[in-house]
Amino acid sequence: MHLAYPAVLAALLFAIGVYGVLARRNTVLVLMSVELMLNAVNLNLVAFDVWLRDALHGGQALTLFTITLAAAEIGLGLAIVLLVFRTRRTADIDRLTALGDPAEDGPAEDDETSDATSAEAVA
């Protein structure tokens, strides 16, 4: 098999994941895009392991480790998202601007709208 096929597929999948991370607003959807990027890296690791065929099988072992780390990451990430949702009543990333720079105008407006939406959600 030509090595370019899995490499190009992994590159395109990684680019789709980058777009998803930057463009999505819901935090859970951002985590799903992160999973896509991790899977692109997994595909690269497996393809290059099959190509190089080293005795240690470093690519496949690292793929297994990456899958385990992704499981741990999605568990912790969803726990954090649930905690944020419970305290702020929203899971939208661009409304969570409590740590943003208050000097600019944009984040201050966002913070007000987030407070308004949280008040509505509580009421």
């Binding site: 980058v18 777009y19 991370v21 930057l22 463009a23 999505r24 607003r25 939208d92 661009d94």
Partner: peptide
């Protein structure tokens, strides 16, 4: 989708 969708498309 958030407001920076077109910037995300460019970066992707």
């Amino acid at each position: 989708d958030s407001g920076n969708r077109w910037a995300a498309l460019a970066v992707g």
